[in-house]
Design a protein around this nucleic acid. Structure first.
Length: 423
RNA sequence: GGAGGGAUGGCCGAGUGGACGAAGGCAACGGUCUUGAAAACCGUAGUGGGCUUUGCCCACCGGGGGUUCGAAUCCCUCUCCCUCCGCCA
């Protein structure tokens, strides 16, 4: 959520930001009109309330019965008018709040301008694309051959975009989660095991609602929403809290499954385990002082990169352009890992500085050391990493001519020493 | 699931219709005293919003709604916490 004052004081800055994001800037004028209307109603209502407060006190003190009756009658009228104004005010505020809640964050100045993902900028590549003296298979062939992925039975249970991991496949998934959490813990993050279902207010706080309702699963009878990412509970965890400055920064890491309806990508990536309705992810999340957030973003990026480096995988760092930036983000780096069997770069991590955008929605502040008004914190989030695509990369990069797959060294202690998957 | 009891400022805690944004205590901050500190004493202090911004006004006592000229206080409702009973991995 943006500060309404930004619209009043610098509407062109907001319009410009929306244009760069390929979003129509007409909402700016709508918001300014609602803001004007709100303040007009508020002024009128508050003036009447001041009068009511003043006269009511006089009524309490008055000894004159006739005087009291006259004032009570007059204030009855005032009450009616206040009620009508407040009703109009509530409606205006609801519309203003809803409009404001749908405005994306302002991109940071250094974000390259562009229409969509084709205009993202590859900053660097780490490692070379491996050469094979045979044709590398895609994971959707390797998995079933190794007996570790069962697509048919996943579909039998739950339909398209579901699969079963079996035997060493299930163990590999679990090993990756445990290893990533341990790595992040060593990097300074506190491990969190959050609820996988949260209230609507939490999804609003992190920015998923109201705009992305269609991509979420929710319980029909109760106020439960399945998390689409651990970023959601890790934001909501400190909702309506005020930190002491000395409490910051806070580094968190969490494993959760992520549940997404994927309505937007119907028919895309239907093969393999690249895009499912349920997938595992280890997430990093940081609360910082505003001044520190840009610097902390670089640490988070490095921490995510270490996962790929330790696995010995080839990846590239991509800076998202304005048109591809997520709703809440002001600056985002994607990490894409090379998958030789699928023959594509797979997004396994998205590392973002959100600024105060979520903090404002979630009302998360800190009190400056020297005293003074509470200020909003900055939040950052980054995957470290998304599991299925990491599994894809491991299977496809470490496959051997005979169809077996070598397990990366770092994972072997988590797999009882297992070094090789064999058909 | 049933019965009962709760939720007040940073913390504790008083307050059952009118000078209550809220006593008192603790903690915090500033000052006096002191070589320094402690103690003692004096003082300052909440959050958000509006405006014609040395200030004035509005709102906020778990959330929402209602009664009333006027609500922390009365009514309805929701959420959460505690106690007991039941059920349960």
């Amino acid at each position: 959520m943006l500060d309404i004052r930004l619209f009043r004081e610098n509407p062109d800055l907001v319009r410009d930001a929306l244009r760069k994001r390929q979003v129509s800037p007409t909402m700016v004028d709508e918001i300014l009109a609602l803001d004007r209307q709100r303040r007009d109603l508020l002024r009128e209502s508050e003036a009447l309330k001041a009068e009511r407060n003043r006269v009511s006190k006089e009524i309490g003190r008055s000894k004159d019965a006739a005087d009291r009756e006259a004032k009570i009658a007059a204030m009855r009228q005032v009450r009616e008018r206040i009620a009508a104004l407040d009703q109009a005010l509530r409606e205006t505020e609801a519309r203003l709040h809803d409009a404001l809640a749908r405005v994306p964050n302002i991109p940071a100045a250094q974000v390259p301008e562009g229409r969509d993902e084709h205009d993202n900028v590859v900053l660097r590549q780490e490692g070379d694309q491996p050469q094979f003296d045979f044709t590398p298979l895609p994971h959707w062939e390797l998995g079933p051959r190794l007996g570790i992925i069962d697509f048919e039975r996943g579909v039998k249970l739950s339909g398209t975009r579901f699969y079963i991991l079996k035997g060493a496949g299930a163990r590999l998934e679990r090993a990756l989660i445990a290893w990533m959490l341990d790595l992040h813990r060593e990097q300074g993050y506190t491990e969190i095991y959050p609820p996988f279902m949260v209230k609507e207010a939490v999804l609003f706080a992190s920015g998923q609602l109201p705009k992305f309702r269609d991509n979420l699963y929710h319980d029909a009878e109760e106020d439960f929403w399945w998390v689409p990412t651990a970023e959601v509970p890790l934001t909501g965890m400190h909702m309506n809290e005020t930190f002491a400055e000395s409490d910051l920064p806070r580094y968190y890491t969490a494993y959760t499954p992520c549940f997404r309806r994927e309505k937007m990508s119907a028919g895309r990536d239907v093969r393999g385990i690249k895009r499912g309705h349920q997938f595992d992810k280890v997430e990093m999340y940081i609360y910082t002082l505003p001044e520190a957030s840009d610097q902390v973003l670089e640490k988070m990026l490095a921490d995510a990169e270490q996962v790929l480096r330790d696995l010995g995988l080839t990846y590239r760092v991509v800076q998202l352009c304005t048109g591809d930036l997520g709703f809440a983000a002001r600056l985002t780096y994607d990490l894409e890992v090379w998958a030789p069997g699928s023959n594509e770069w797979l997004e396994v991590s998205s590392v973002s500085n959100v600024g105060d955008f979520q903090a404002r929605r979630a009302n998360i502040r800190y009190r400056p050391e020297g005293g003074g008004k509470p200020r909003f914190v900055h939040t950052l989030n980054g995957s470290g990493l998304a599991l299925p695509r990491t599994v894809i990369a491991i299977l496809e990069n470490y496959q051997q001519p005979d169809g077996s797959v070598v397990i990366p060294e770092v994972l072997r202690p988590y797999l009882g020493g297992l070094a090789m998957l064999r058909p």
